[in-house]
Design a protein around this nucleic acid. Structure first.
Length: 439
RNA sequence: GCCCUGGUGGUGUAGGGGCUAUCAUGUGGGCCUGUCGAGCCCACGACUCGGGUUCAAAUCCCGGCCAGGGCGCCA
């Protein structure tokens, strides 16, 4: 029933087929999006990675064998079609293909687990179960083309500034930074964990003279959260810079973010149009608010927030009402930031840490780090952690650790900002959340 | 982890003690030479699982499983 690819190769994608190619022969390959059989004429919609082309088969213009073959096609089957471009005002986009030969490369079973034409919208749970089919929808795969472009832009930007891409282990012995829960795993006869962040490793790289490093890699959090903005496996864009303070890396971060948005806007026009997003390139520098100012702002919005508390969801939402785009929150209380964050030398109650927000969503956090060994030990103790379990990390601070600063940016949350996705799961091919471990 | 809501054909839904279970889409078949959410005709296909109440349960009660939302937790 099905035929082999043989020596046929695609000559064009759908989006490349234009009316001025009239009479040109070409070969298209893709999926049957829709079939409209009118009896004496059949319209096929052939969909490929970013477009749809109409294949028009009038019974008088194509052979009866081919006409019968086309009549028997089923939605979502994979086909290769050789044909001629026909300019036509009656066709969508002013152009259609008159088929001459067809190869059925693979038949799709029926019924489909969801409708790729989106006449009936499936729920996210159904869509994730059949993600391969869901991703055939241009509205869905556009998100991943945008995410890809954003990551590409981030790499270009950092490489241009002579950053070195590093890879740090994801299998780690405990020595947790604290805060989050870790996923325990079996490492031969020992217990180990999946890494919550490359934090301790990228800091150790500061003692190597590599000076400017970045890593784009998965991070794992075993929190039982169940929200539209949390994942148990996410991609973190992590940066660490030696001989720098928090202000230096805030500038780096805002320039990188603005650059990525500009790049996506310039290179993903069709994808943005497909998902109906009008991107605005933010002006730099981004507004900078102190944590204390945020407390006042939130309270003035009628949401109770005491100085010293981390932002509640209600507080974030209140900020989202006041602030429209990207902004920094700096000068956080030391108490609610991790041990490796540098306290302000004049007022150690306040830290040299910042978060980057987009409206009500935290997308990045960073800081000037503690580079002094004894202060670091003191900070570890004050967080109720045992310095002994950080020996290998702490040693790197005893033989020449320069001052340094850095941040981590959540790739999925940033993608939410770029695409307007309301659910972070929309920005991951195969999301891992509290309940989902497959596919 | 807490709170709320829900689970009905492949998909998305209506129905809330007494049916042959609604509609759309789809699927299979038929008609139709300009469809573009094609149209028309015929057919197909479903009450999350277990227990209970009742003459009678998709519907009410209890429990499990699964899902959606909110919050908490979240370097």
């Amino acid at each position: 029933m099905t035929e082999s690819l043989g020596d046929w190769r695609r000559t064009h994608y759908s989006r490349q087929v234009k009316p001025d190619m009239n009479s040109q022969k070409l070969t298209l390959m893709g999926w049957i999006h829709e079939i409209r059989d009118l009896g004496g004429i059949i319209f096929l919609l052939l969909r490929d990675r970013d477009g749809i082309t109409q294949i028009t088969a009038p019974s008088k213009k194509v052979s009866s064998e081919l006409f019968e073959e086309i009549r028997k096609l089923r939605k979502e089957s994979v086909v290769a079609i050789k044909g001629t471009v026909q300019e036509s005002g009656k066709a969508p986009g002013g152009v259609e293909i008159i088929p001459e030969e067809l190869r059925l490369l693979n038949q799709s079973q029926q019924p489909l687990p969801l409708d790729p034409t989106e006449k009936v919208r499936a729920e996210i749970d159904t869509r994730l179960d059949s993600r391969y089919l869901d991703l055939r929808k241009h509205s869905v795969n556009s998100i991943f083309k945008i995410k890809s472009r954003m990551l590409h832009s981030v790499r270009l930007f950092l490489e241009e500034q002579e950053f070195i891409e590093i890879n740090t282990p994801k299998l780690v012995a405990s020595a947790t930074e604290g805060g989050t829960e870790l996923f325990p795993i079996t490492y031969f006869e020992r217990e180990a964990f999946l890494g919550q962040s490359p934090q301790l490793y990228k800091q150790m790289m500061m003692a190597t003279s590599l000076d400017k490093v970045y890593e784009i890699a998965p991070i794992f959090r075993a929190e039982e959260h169940d929200t539209l903005r949390h994942l148990n496996e996410a991609i973190s864009i992590d940066v660490e810079v030696a001989f720098a303070d928090q202000d230096d890396v805030m500038i780096l971060l805002e320039e990188m973010v603005a650059n990525a948005i500009k790049d996506v806007k310039e290179n993903c026009g069709e994808e943005l149009e497909t998902i109906g997003v009008e991107l605005e390139v933010p002006k730099t520098p981004f507004p900078r608010l102190r944590y204390s100012e945020v407390v006042d702002l939130v309270n003035s919005q009628g949401v109770n927030l005491r100085y010293g508390e981390d932002l509640s969801r209600a507080a974030e939402k209140a900020m989202g009402e006041v602030m429209d785009g990207y902004y920094f929150i700096s000068d956080w209380p030391s108490d609610i930031k991790p041990f490796y964050v540098m306290p302000n030398s004049e007022n150690p109650e306040v830290s040299q840490a910042f978060d980057l927000m987009y409206r009500d969503l935290e997308i990045s956090s960073g800081a000037m780090r503690v580079h002094l060994h004894d202060l670091l030990v003191e900070r570890i103790k004050s967080k109720g952690l045992n310095p002994d379990s950080f020996n290998r990390y702490l040693a790197a601070f005893q033989y020449g650790m320069p001052p340094h600063a850095g941040w981590g940016l959540g790739a999925e949350r940033f993608t939410m900002c770029l695409t307007g996705a309301k659910n972070v799961r929309e920005t991951v091919l195969f999301p891992r959340d509290r309940r989902r471990l497959t596919p």
